[in-house]
């Protein structure tokens, strides 16, 4: 009973926070949603440019744009969640004055907003592609959502760990950025692991994102069989990091509340 009541309160809090986050991001100016659309668009355009300058064919399917899109959306989901969760607490500290608002609720609402935004963005671009006459054929929606869920866990976990470390070591932010920026190039956004030589693959194999993006793509492309992604590894890493993040958050959130 008590638990159901708590769940009910948390549900209210999260929905209120999500509404607030939505208003804060998209309510006051039209720029918010425009940016949400523009960012993946820019990545897609740049890579189409690079690939056509190099006279390269798309590694998968028949549309270069779709190929990049299926890589950039999971990537953005990951990196946006990380940055949103990392900064979530500091930009919402005032709302913690309401005692039933827990730091984790802010995290959850931000993640929910990010996921819904990118989901809509993906649908938007698929619709555009459809109008442009590009054939859209999704192999398995479920197989796309599984890695999506894991990306959410991974991003949230890393964001929570960051949020716990940064107050103690502010210089950690730049260290983290320095390490995570190169991830963009080894996460399989503009290539598939099948094209990598085994030596290179061994080098990027540790990166759970390449596994997840490969998984996402093999859910989208009916013809794509990536034998290089390892679901067990991805699940273990993502759930592990998420649990660690939750643990760190619990240990540090009581302090975060002290005004």
């Amino acid at each position: 009973m008590e638990f159901l009541n708590a769940l009910n309160v948390q549900g209210r809090v999260i929905s209120a926070l999500t509404l607030r986050e939505t208003r804060a991001r998209y309510g006051n100016s039209k720029l918010g949603f425009f940016w949400a659309l523009f960012e993946p668009f820019a990545h897609v355009v740049v890579f189409i440019g690079i690939f056509s300058a190099l006279d390269r064919a798309t590694p998968l399917g028949d549309s270069m744009g779709l190929f990049i899109l299926t890589g950039i959306i999971p990537w953005l989901l990951y990196s946006n969640i990380v940055s949103n969760v990392t900064t979530g607490l500091s930009s919402n500290k005032a709302l913690l004055g309401y005692p039933q608002v827990m730091p984790i609720d802010i995290t959850i609402s931000r993640v929910a907003l990010e996921f819904s935004t990118l989901f809509l963005v993906m649908l938007f671009f698929l619709a555009i592609a459809h109008y442009m006459g590009i054939r859209i054929r999704i192999d398995s929606f479920l197989e796309m959502m599984k890695p999506t869920g894991l990306i959410i866990l991974l991003g949230t976990g890393i964001g929570l760990i960051n949020a716990a470390i940064i107050p103690h070591y502010p210089s950690y932010t730049s260290i983290f950025n320095a390490f995570s920026r190169p991830l963009y190039f080894i996460s399989g956004i503009f290539f598939t692991a099948n094209f990598l030589s085994p030596e290179v693959f061994e080098f990027v194999d540790f990166n759970p994102l390449i596994h997840l993006i490969e998984w996402f793509r093999s859910g989208y492309y009916p013809s794509f069989e990536s034998d290089l992604y390892d679901p067990e590894y991805a699940v273990f890493i993502c759930v592990g990091i998420f649990t660690l993040g939750l643990l760190v958050e619990r240990l540090s959130s009581k302090k975060a509340r002290q005004v």
Binding site: F3, L7, Q10, P99, Q100, V239, T243
Partner: peptide
């Protein structure tokens, strides 16, 4: 450990909200 830790953390995160109507 992961299963227990994860479930425990999730449940206690929810239970933090107990006490308010």
């Amino acid at each position: 450990l992961l299963l227990w830790g994860l479930l425990g953390l999730i449940i206690s995160s929810i239970r933090d909200h107990a006490g308010w109507m």
